[in-house]
Simulated scan of single mutants.
Amino acid sequence: MTEHEDVRELLAAWAFGALDAAEAERVPPHLAGCESCAAEAARLRETVRLLDGPPIGGLPARPATGLPPALLARRPAAPRTAAHAAPYAAAVQGLRALLPEAEGRWATPVVHDWDVHATVAHLLAADEALAGRLGIPARVPATVLPQTVLPQDMRWEDAWNRRTADVIAHEHGRTPEETVAAWAGQADALLATPEARDAELAARAELLMGIRLPVADHFVVRAFEAWIHTDDIGRALGLVVPPPPAEHLGQLVRLAVRVLGLALGPDAAPVLFSVSGDEQWVLGSEDEPVAAELALDPVDFCLLVGGRCTPAEVPRGASGDAAAVRNVLETAASLAWL
């Protein structure tokens, strides 16, 4: 590898201040004499300007990913919403801030068999179910039956995958910019609904993705997925995507814990579960003594529930019954559908 190629590989980490001292010293002299790398460095520094900010209090570096300590995004002003929709509004703005970095790299593989373009198309399809329930017309023609009228014996995962594949196929016939505009327009429409601004209206329950939750919680689910896929795209492009702001991350964690508790059921061996020591829950039976204790970092817990790390990989603090701890971790991982 030439010196030019070697330094160019370092630019993203240099822009985020993630290089060691020896590597960092190599970059400025090269930029002084290389116009293309200097332009790339300026572009990356602009991304840092959008994403940079103070570390989230109490959140350590993520040892499972090897990324630098998490940064809090300085996003453009999000629409005014009620508290339940604020995480989704922030996640949408975070993805908007990142997508300019995909210019010229839309075909970069991201996750599953999706490239960047297809991942945005997937989010367009993923938001569609909630949007439809709130009276927002689909942005993509219904060339397959809408999810609400698919055969009753079809599993929701199959309907979800079928619609995603259809939307991705449709969007690959359009430009990435058109897909981004369709996704962003639908997201804006969701955030403009009365349910996004009124907690009382958002209290009604809707069955989406196989689970009946208040509309307010479905907004949190949308935030969870938007952030996970923003992180996917960032990793694919070699950029660090910060986790949600602390208050939003707490909402994601609390909803995931509730769903995990339902999945474990009342007969599982009870485990005292905590996330960075801030909150604790007893998962499993309420009639037996606690069999084990388990502590996870909030970002790691979300990545586990989101299918981005395995029970074996996720850093944890654990004591007591190893089988009970394993049951919690494996059940959390089984919730992944993103």
Results as ranks from 00 to 15, higher is better:
A78N: 03
D166A: 14
H112N: 12
E225W: 09
A21N: 09
E157Q: 14
E177I: 04
M1H: 13
E206L: 14
R80H: 13
S36Q: 12
A324L: 06
E9Q: 15
H229S: 01
V180C: 13
L59R: 11
T108I: 04
L262T: 12
F219E: 13
V328Y: 10
A291W: 00
A336G: 10
P100N: 13
E200L: 08
D232Q: 03
P151Q: 07
L255K: 13
E171N: 15
A78L: 01
A102Q: 03
A89R: 00
E35H: 12
V167K: 04
L67T: 11
T65A: 09
L207N: 06
W281M: 05
R45E: 15
P54S: 08
G284Q: 00
E279A: 09
V111F: 02
A18C: 02
T2M: 09
V259D: 10
L213S: 04
A182F: 01
V140S: 14
E171G: 14
A61W: 10
T164Y: 07
P79T: 11
L71I: 13
P214F: 04
A318W: 10
L255Q: 03
P60Q: 02
P63G: 09
V149D: 04
E279R: 13
R174M: 03
T81K: 06
V167D: 09
A24Y: 11
L10W: 02
V271E: 05
V275Y: 03
A118C: 04
A21G: 14
Q186R: 03
V240Y: 04
V27I: 06
S334L: 03
P176T: 05
A22V: 12
D20S: 07
G317C: 01
A89N: 05
A129H: 13
G210A: 08
C302K: 02
Y88V: 10
R49Y: 02
P194H: 07
V275L: 14
R74F: 00
R212H: 07
T119Y: 00
A268G: 07
R49C: 04
D6E: 06
R174N: 12
R258I: 14
A38P: 04
V305E: 08
A312T: 13
A83S: 10
R62K: 14
A22P: 02
N327G: 08
R133Q: 15
P60R: 01
P87R: 00
E103R: 05
P141I: 05
A90T: 07
A107I: 05
M1I: 08
G132V: 12
A332L: 05
D127G: 11
D188T: 14
A86H: 08
A159F: 06
L283Y: 09
A97S: 14
D321R: 04
A64R: 03
W337Q: 09
